[in-house]
Design a protein around this nucleic acid. Sequence first.
DNA 1: CAGCCAATGTACATCGATGTAAAAACAGGT
DNA 2: ACCTGTTTTTACATCGATGTACATTGGCTG
Lengths: 356, 356
Amino acid sequence: MARPRIKDVARHAGVSEKTVSNVLNDYVHVSERTRRVVQEAIDHLGYRVNLAGRHLRSGRSGIIALVVPELDVPYFAELARHVVREAEKRSLTVLIHQSGGDRERERAAVAGFGSDFVDGVILSPLALAPEDLRAHTGPPPTVLLGELLTDGADHVAIDNERAAREATEHLIALGRRRILTVGGRDDEGVGTAQARTRGCRAALAAAGLAYDPASLLPVEAFHMADGAAAVRRTLAEGVRPDALLCLNDQLALGALRALREYGARVPEDVAVIGFDDVEGGRFSVPTLSTVAPDKEAVARVAVALLLHRIDEAARPGLPPDGSDRPGSACPQDRVVAHRLVLRESTEGAVGPDGVW
Amino acid sequence: MARPRIKDVARHAGVSEKTVSNVLNDYVHVSERTRRVVQEAIDHLGYRVNLAGRHLRSGRSGIIALVVPELDVPYFAELARHVVREAEKRSLTVLIHQSGGDRERERAAVAGFGSDFVDGVILSPLALAPEDLRAHTGPPPTVLLGELLTDGADHVAIDNERAAREATEHLIALGRRRILTVGGRDDEGVGTAQARTRGCRAALAAAGLAYDPASLLPVEAFHMADGAAAVRRTLAEGVRPDALLCLNDQLALGALRALREYGARVPEDVAVIGFDDVEGGRFSVPTLSTVAPDKEAVARVAVALLLHRIDEAARPGLPPDGSDRPGSACPQDRVVAHRLVLRESTEGAVGPDGVW
DNA sequence: CAGCCAATGTACATCGATGTAAAAACAGGT
DNA sequence: ACCTGTTTTTACATCGATGTACATTGGCTG
């Protein structure tokens, strides 16, 4: 009553094991009749291939890993959904890992999790340093999401600097001048936060506005709690901005909450804009203006790029070298579209409260 | 320069392959000296076990699947985080699947995804029917989350009926009488929605309030958009409730938005309560009262139960029978704690808007 | 009808790790 | 030194699927 093996199917169909395997793998030279007989045996016994055996033999598991900092950050959850869907189309299974923004865990990810059972890795790094990547050029193939860390690996992202510039220009066009950047970072790092901060500064400079380092509100993490805390802290100090550029929607939603506690009307007193276009921002009070990355495209491009690398690595070609095949061996750098979605938090009012 | 195999380590250490395997698996009868030599060879070569080989030999992959309807529903994302963390503690890896609430996909999950590479499945069903489960009692071991579908499988959930009763009692205690149930369902199904609806009715009955089938607002899915749409529709019809019991926080957050559009003050005009205690409800305006399940406990119990089944299945004992080992062969039914978290949407006001 | 090519099917080795059975090494007791 | 019993190590088969190399079959040509 155990699960049937290929040999059981072979016996049942009266053919050899290899013939069954050939049917399973759509090998061309199998007569229609044999194929039918084998298929019937398969159906009859309820046979299904054992991935362990196939994996051992082929060296491919059909599993790719997606590593994100935290799943319960809606942006990553939405991204994960798209990646899973995209991978499924190409009959790959996705293993989702959470790094918690821990450098050690991210390093483990690019190293293939201390074993070789994933065919490839899509990593959204938070703490990984460029040298970690350089240290590990070997398998498995890796695609990075988010900011460009180094030129050592494939990479997919929106143009964060330009997106931040556009968002800031929008705030400036609304007549806002006292703009704070929630989550902004001034340091030398190569992360998404720094790129967006640069874009913001560029817009300010272009508008002839002074840049004040104090306009950057640092946060621990990009959660609602951090956004709310940072804004509460600043407001408590007596600072009165007229616009907030929040580096993601979670921060922005937390900021909306904090502003409300201080009696500020959004957008009349303070305009707020975020990044990511998550579900929460489409139903908040007020609804949230945001920079919407094409998440579906990010997922599609990332999976395609990764699959390409995997196939490439499987071919007997010159693996570590990389002098031939133009535009293939050298790391790809794909920029995905984004657009500004303007909602109530910068553009309009919800309407009066209490006319029930 | 290929990845080293166990045989390479053996050669390098001057011992047999099995001895290396023994060291790897902490077999007792290995002399201290041999162990040291082998360990040095392992470190020197940077050897790491190949999971494909181990999986093939042992029949265990060390991977469990978590199947949820959608990852971008925050409750499932938070649950996923806990499950992953819990599994990691027991050196299991979690494969996350999304069923999209599709019955076919859920059925595939309990059937082990058409292959046997997962050791077990934790499934949060949405569309699965009891008969689907009964049809597939074979491997892999399965633990269900959410409502009790049948007595055929292990199962972990909060007491949804009681939780809904408590939430409704809270609304009634506030003096509310025109209570609508957003997402409520009256039918004969065995899902979470039905259980919560029953609890609500029980509370109404206990308070001597009439039950009106029209108080159930059906929804397509449990997303913010559905909550907002359902409430808008009802308000447009002229219905004026004084409380909303929303069957999850997403519906509730959508409802808050819709209420605001109609000028209703929450909680003064309408009290709102949800289920799940997601992050969004802790920062919404107003903050959301909710039924908070102990998600960490759900994850912990589910993983423990599953692991137990997996071990059980591996032992040579009487698999399909199940007459011995009391309280083990028979399906477990674990109820996890929940508590009412009362916030502004039922208890207090945010404070006046516009005193900036 | 012999002869040959292509289409089709088979036996066997292989992927890497580990269980089995048995051999080798070692300790202690007489 | 010899036997006994235990520890330590080894050779080999095994898990399931598939690539390789070869055997067989059938169809077609000359």
